[in-house]
């Protein structure tokens, strides 16, 4: 197992390197001059002389490769530079907004698991029944639903019509319900179907037959053996989902005025606050890669075949 993890970790290095390079180059695609953007945001008239001085100050006069190495050296020490807008260190700002996004995403993940796993299991066990059909239709609608529209529908019915939950903002637990449910909805649909398919595939495997022959209780067979196997593709998909959910959170945040990273990022985009934009992109890339690594490790724990293959 240790070797498996070490191997996976070593594969991480070139990818992280690629991510940093892409992030660095991406920002260079922006039309307009960063120095000019900085001056405008600081309310200094962007004269030629001022721009040149700013280029020197921001290190933009050096060759691209030197800039990259400089930037990478700082990033490794968690120095993401200073925001053009607030003049605060970007890292501090990120850490100010990130917990809200993380809270939203983690709640949505928990909701997804708690709702889709039971529905998926029951749909598979009672395949073709009423419940299965109902969950099929619901998940079909769920997968086709625009998140931003769903958010407003929830807000309209639960907050305005029924007056049960707060409309926007962050604070109490009640504030968390609608945004996280909105975010989770599409994933609940996907995972219900995924788990159902995967359960059905495993229900007719020889090991299930063998377990029945051994006289194990049906509950044990389903709960311990089939479910464990059926969860494998679900776990794999989850690695992808976390990143997409974090991005989905950006849209949900803008609907529910949730003070998270998404709103921070979108406002940084509109202000052309390059250090913030760059850091957000890098952060997302790293989170996504780390999530996939964790999923790989979880996969290795769940399925010994993969672990052994890795060790050989």
């Amino acid at each position: 197992m240790i070797w498996f993890i070490v191997k996976r970790l070593s594969m991480l290095i070139p990818i992280l390197f690629g991510i940093s390079l892409l992030t660095f180059l991406l920002i260079r695609l922006a039309p307009g001059d960063p120095a000019e953007a900085y001056l405008r945001l600081s309310h200094i008239p962007p004269t030629n002389q001022a721009i040149q001085e700013m280029n020197v100050k921001l290190g933009l006069d050096k060759p691209l490769i030197v800039q990259y190495v400089d930037w990478l050296g700082k990033v490794v020490r968690l120095d993401f530079g200073i925001s053009y807008v607030s003049k605060q260190p970007v890292w501090d700002e990120l850490m100010l907004y990130f917990p809200a996004t993380l809270q939203l995403t983690i709640t949505a993940v928990i909701l997804t698991v708690c709702i889709s796993v039971p529905i998926g299991i029951f749909s598979a066990l009672y395949k073709g029944g009423m419940f299965d059909h109902l969950s099929r239709i619901l998940s079909f609608v769920g997968a086709s639903m625009p998140t931003f529209w769903l958010g407003f529908l929830f807000m309209y019915f639960f907050s305005i019509k029924l007056d049960l939950l707060p409309v926007v903002g962050r604070g109490s637990l009640a504030h968390l319900v609608l945004p996280s449910l909105t975010l989770a909805f599409a994933y609940i649909s996907t995972y219900t179907r995924l788990l159902r398919t995967s359960m059905l595939e495993n229900l007719h495997q020889p090991f299930v037959f063998y377990a029945r022959v051994r006289g194990l209780q049906e509950r044990v067979i389903i709960g311990r053996h089939v479910l464990k196997m059926a969860l494998l593709p679900v776990v794999t998909a989850f690695g992808m989902t976390i990143g997409n959910m974090l991005t989905g959170a950006f849209i949900v945040e803008s609907i529910f005025a949730w003070p998270g990273l998404g709103r921070f990022f979108v406002s940084a985009l509109s202000h052309r606050d390059y250090p913030v934009v760059q850091s957000c992109i890098l952060l997302m890339g790293v989170i996504f890669v780390v999530c996939n690594l964790l999923v790989d490790i979880a996969y290795g724990l769940l399925d010994p075949r993969i672990r052994w293959k890795g060790e050989r």
């Binding site: 892409l22 989905g248 997302m284």
Partner: peptide, 10 residues
């Protein structure tokens, strides 16, 4: 490897 390291929507 690098491009798919990011969530596509992001």
């Amino acid at each position: 490897d690098v491009l798919l390291a990011f969530p596509s929507l992001f």
